[in-house]
Write a protein that binds this DNA or RNA. Sequence first.
RNA 1: CGGAGUGUAGCGCAGCCUGGUUAGCGCACCUGGUUUGGGACCAGGGGGUCGAAGGUUCGAAUCCUUUCACUCCGACCA
Length: 563
Amino acid sequence: MRLSRLFAPTTKEAPKDAVLPSHIFLVRGGFIAQIGSGIYNYLPLGKMVLDRIRSVVKEELDAVGNQEVLLGFVTPSELWKESGRYDKFGKELLRFKDRKNNEFVLGPTHEEAMVDLVRNRVKSYKQLPLNLYQINTKFRDEARPRYGLLRGREFIMKDGYSFHESVEDMQREYALMEKTYGRILDRLGLRYRVVEADSGAIGGSGSKEFMVLADNGEDDIVICEGCDYAANIEAAKRAPREVDASDVEMTPGSFHTPGVRTIEELASFFRISPDFLVKAVAKKAIYPDHEEVVLFFLRGSDTLQETKAATACGALELAEASKEALEEAGLVPGYIGPDVQGVQKYVDLELKEQAPMICGDNKPDSHYVGYSFKGKAFDYRDLVTVEAGDRCHRCGGRLTVTKGIEVGHIFQLGTRYSEALQATFLDRNGKAQPFVMGTYGIGVSRLVAVVVEQHHDERGCIWTEETTPFEVMIILSNAKDDTQREYGETLYAQLREKGKRVLLDDRNERFGFKMSDFELFGFPRAVIVGKGLKEGKVELVDRGTLQKEEVSADAVASRLMES
RNA sequence: CGGAGUGUAGCGCAGCCUGGUUAGCGCACCUGGUUUGGGACCAGGGGGUCGAAGGUUCGAAUCCUUUCACUCCGACCA
C-alpha cells in the first residue's frame, strides 16, 4: 500500500472529549471515527487491526474444534420472552418493531438465539459436545457510552456457546476455553490476569474474567502477592480480618447516644476502633415486580460490596434508599441494629459469633453496647469489599487492588437457558435432558483499544506483531529525490513479493511530518530512505524504542525478512 | 435516569451578555513558487441553510419558546 493512496486522515489535534490514549491515538491516527454516541466507523487501518485480532481469535478457536456461525443481529423478541430476559435486561436492550408491528431486539448477546439454533436440530448425546461461536456486532444501549472503543454501544464480540451432556464435560470445555483464551491474549501481546468473577445477570455457577492490566481500566481487581489468586472486586474473597477483642470490655445495655449516627461519630464517641461497631447499610432493592428496603450489616471498618449484596437478596439491582423510604419501613436512620424486625436483612459472614459489639438500638438516640452475635441465627453472607492490605483466603499473602479492563469472560452456564427454552437431547438412557451449557465471550473491538491502552507512548500507538496493520513502513525522506524514490520503490516491490505487509510513504511531505505520522500509526518498524543513500546506507527505526540503526541499503531487505 | 454544559467551515475555537452592512481566527484543503532529516515559507484561493423548527423585531448567530444531537459528573454497565 502507498500512503499517498491510503485513506488514513491523521490529525494533529485530538477530539476534545478524548481522554484515554487509545481513544486519542486511534482517532488521531485515522483508525476510527465516531459517527454517533458510542458508535464508531472503522477506517482502513482500524479495520485491518480488527481483522487481525479477529483472525487470531478464529485460528485459536478453530484449532480446538469450535465452529464459527453467524447469527442474525436482529432477534425476534419472542425468544427473549421465552427465556424471561425480555423484562430483566432493562433499557440496555434496544427494542423496536417492524412494519408488521412484530417486536425485535438488537442482540446484546445471543444465548437465546444460539439455543434456538441448536434445539430440535441436535437431538442425541451422540452429537455432543458442540461448541459454536460467532464474531458479530452487538448492541447495548449503554446509559453513558465513553472512552472511545472501550465502552461503545455498538461493538464487536466473539461469543461462543457450548452444549454438553454432563456438567463434567462442560467443565472440561470450560477449562479448555480458559487455556485457549490465554493463548489468544498471549499472541496479541497483552499482559493479563485471569480472575474469578461474579456471574451477574447472565446466571450460572462458575465464571472467570480475562483482565488486561491497564491504569485506565474500569474494573478493580484483587491480586494476591503470595499465590495466583486473583478476582474481580465484585467476587473477591479474603481471609477474615483478625480482630483482637481480648482487652475490650463492655457491659451489655442500651446507651444514650444523641446525634451520633455515623460510624466515625460512633467510633470517636466510644473511643473505640470501628472494628467493634456494626454498620447497617440500607439499600432499595429493585425486583422485576416491586421494590423494597433491604438491610446489610457489616463491621464498621468494612465497606459493602454492592454486587455481593445484590446477589444475596436476589435483586436486579440496588439503589440508594431514601430517608423517607427507611422511615416508611419503620426504621430509624442512624440507629438501625441487627435485631430490627419486619425488613429483609443480611449479615456479613465475618460478624458471625463476634462479640462484644456496638450496634444500633432501633430507637432514636440509642445504641446497644455489648451486643453478641454468638448463637444468633441470621442470614450470613459474604458482603464485604476486599481492600488492599487484606489477607488472601488461600495462602494468607497480602492482597493488592489494581485496575483492569475486561476483555474476556467465560461462564459455566448450566441448564438455565436450555431449560427455559426447552432445548433437550436424548441421553444414553433415551431420556430427554436439557443441554448443559457454557458460554464464552471476547470483546474483539474492545481489544483494538486495549492493545493501544497497553502499548503506546506519548507519540502514538505501538502495535504488536500480531495486531499491526503493516509490518514495515518505508519512509522516503524526500519523495522528489529520484534516487530515493527508485530505491524505495524497488524495496517496496521486493518486500511485497515476499509477502511482507509494507506501506510506502511516497507523499511529498517534509521529513518531520512523515516521522510523526509513522510514530502516530505505530507500525513496529520503518526504513528511512534519506541522505545516507548516497553512501549506500539506510536507517532502520524501531517504533518501540525509537532507536535508529544504520544498515547497508543492500542488506535491509533480508534484515526485514528476519523480523 | 439525575445534575451541568456545548452545538458557528473537515478539526479546534472567537463572536452571543449589550441584535445592525460582507460572520471571523488557527490548523487542514486547492493553485503557483521556494523548500525537503523532525509537523516549513511566500503569494493567491475555495469552503458556512451559525444544529432544527417556531416566535419577537424594521433587522436575529446574538433575545424568547420548543425540539434534536453531542459531551462532562454521577447512577448504571455479561
